[in-house]
Design a protein around this nucleic acid. Sequence first.
DNA 1: TATTGTTATACTCTATAACTATA
DNA 2: TATAGTTATAGAGTATAACAATA
Lengths: 147, 147
Amino acid sequence: MATERTDPLTVEVVELIGDVVARYYTEYEQAAAKHSLTGVQARVLGLLATEPTPMRRIAQKLRCEPSNITGIVDRLEARGLVERRPDPYDRRVKIAAATEEGMGTARRLRESLDFAREPLAQLTDEERRGLRDLLRRMLGAGAPAVP
Amino acid sequence: MATERTDPLTVEVVELIGDVVARYYTEYEQAAAKHSLTGVQARVLGLLATEPTPMRRIAQKLRCEPSNITGIVDRLEARGLVERRPDPYDRRVKIAAATEEGMGTARRLRESLDFAREPLAQLTDEERRGLRDLLRRMLGAGAPAVP
DNA sequence: TATTGTTATACTCTATAACTATA
DNA sequence: TATAGTTATAGAGTATAACAATA
């Protein structure tokens, strides 16, 4: 059902969320660029640093077509940050995984994302818990995530 | 200064913010696609629906190179959603503005962005005020915005 | 001289469709 | 036959550099 809330307070909060999103996204791109990575390359590298993943699965997580992953992994592989491994149980499948160097780059990238962490540090534990519960509710209200 | 907060609660909140950003971004792109617009085109149209803007200023707001705006406005103009007007005070400047049709598209686009508004409706006014203040603090803590 | 918008170029990301090698 | 990954293609967004018109 369409929820009708057009009071000034709600409108302001919606706009603020849009601002936070734009800000977060911009800073993520800039952090990636400092490592000579595009935003998408950084996202894939971060994914593979957490867990080696079949090509198709990467596409699902990024919500894009599988054919696009080929090129993205190609470019990461050409820089020695990622490698393709065979799947011992299905010879059609290729599992992309971060190399040692890729793991290091992913870690430095993660640590440089201070935008969210810094202002959060100004909050009390109580406020942080409140924010956490609020965000959970926002995320739980709609479509399912792709884990 | 680098703020060191790596306790589980802060880490979880940072991850949740990342999730909200990803979710917001995805839904924005989908809403734009329903009007046969790319995300960037939708952003520019939304900007021009609020206020006619010189080409260079659009680039500043989007934080990209001015040369890119030419093509984006070209495509919006080809569809009759935007038009270029001369600046009476400086003949070098072209002011991009939404047409009547563009205003309508921008309005429908705005109204279809329910992701943020719906879960927000579940909160009390008190909670909404708390969230607003929190988001303001987050946005105020870092680099200056481009108004 | 400096600035505005544009053009030209190269690269990346994207979806679509067709291909290959496996299953 | 169905699926995983790839290739080929076309469109869009991006940065860089060079250009014409105007300030």
